[in-house]
Simulated assay, not measured.
Amino acid sequence: MMNSGRRVIGSEHVAETRAKGRVVMEIMPTDIVTAQAQETAARLGIKLVPGPLERPQVHKTDGATSLRRTLYRRSPRWIAPQRPKNGTASPIRKLALIGAGGVGANIGHLAANAGSADEIALIDVVPGLAASVALDLNHASGVSRSRSRASGGEDLSAVADADVVVVTAGRPRTPGMTRADLIDVNRRVIHTTAEAIRTKAPGAVVIVVTNPLDEMTVEMLRATEFPREQVLGMAGTLDSSRFRNALAMAAGVSSGDVEAITLGSHGDEMAPIVSRARIKGRPLDVFLDGKQIDACVKDAVTGGGQVVALRKTGSATIAPAHASIELIDHIRGARTGPVPASVMLDGEFGISGVVLGVPCHLGSNGLISVKELPLSRSELDALQAAAEAIRERLEA
């Protein structure tokens, strides 16, 4: 019974406390305890303690920890993936994109939205194409509030003083065509762009996207006469993304639960590294059988061809753009840790004198070092086979 904040504690209140599994009942200074309540408390083993009692501090848990515990209760096999920590990022002063088609335009869009560069210069031989993309990007800044300013034109002199140059120009594949079929026609494109880069932007880090990528990266190195640190090929980031996607789909998980890397060439000699791939922090065979893993490897190798077969008039544009931005992010310090890129090898993995996709540490001046991961014998053999295949194609 309540009256002006005072409680009359009866035997029924003590019994209720017992029913709740409690052994202590708080009695406030204004409470009236009946004789029947005291007898019931003694009989049931309930302590009548003068209050107010000190309340224990509530332990607060951050959202990430709570989510991890919930997911673990649902499936004890789940392990939170280790994410690379971001470094201190700074925008590139000037990013030049040679080629304003599907890949170049998407790189420009992603770079502008992320604030990756203060200035984005697009160049394309098709009259009006680069200028139209640049204008479109500037118009979008009214919504995105991007601080990047874009310009476009046909003259290669626009690469002047660029800090990073991404070369996407060249003929794309069509159905039935391999990347190697593009060597002769795209070699001329690379030599033309290399001359402009060498004379107008001698300090730039060059990222080659033009196919066949490994061979064209070699051509860019020869034509610019730059040190190997300044010329990178974008391939491993794209191929690794395709491999992670295939594994995620096969295992029925999110791509964020998968860590995997692909090395070797950007072609049939691609080497998805199965031994180091993980799903939710566990080896692949915890989730997939051998046939499923082999199918994922094949899907990564043929991923580009699948897009070409469906599109018929060109090759992939969105995934290569994201993969290029990943390299740019490592160069500008937005991401840290090793990332797969095609570089001229100088004894790493026992290979020299050929461009091959390997794990690299990158910085503002390009390649810092190659990280030699421990690989299985078959994976090392695959790298050696890729190196020999690239040498043969270039010599032919």
Rank of each mutant, 00 (worst) to 15 (best):
P91I: 02
T34G: 06
N113K: 14
V166L: 15
V159P: 10
P127H: 11
I46A: 10
S116M: 11
I98M: 13
I32W: 08
S148I: 04
K85I: 05
R77A: 14
D161H: 13
T88K: 02
D118F: 05
G108H: 06
R74A: 12
P56A: 09
N113V: 14
I107H: 03
N113E: 15
P81S: 03
R171F: 08
H139R: 13
Q82A: 11
R43F: 05
L95H: 08
I92L: 12
P56N: 14
V165Q: 07
G63V: 11
V103W: 04
S141I: 03
T168F: 05
R145T: 07
G152R: 08
P76S: 10
V166I: 15
G63Q: 11
L135S: 11
R74I: 10
L48F: 02
L53W: 08
A105M: 05
H139E: 11
R83S: 04
G51S: 06
I27R: 04
P29R: 00
A150R: 06
H109W: 11
M28Q: 06
T70Q: 12
S157N: 11
E39K: 14
M28R: 13
L156P: 07
N113W: 05
A100N: 09
A114V: 00
N86T: 08
H109K: 13
A89W: 05
R83G: 01
G142D: 11
N138P: 06
G170S: 07
T34P: 07
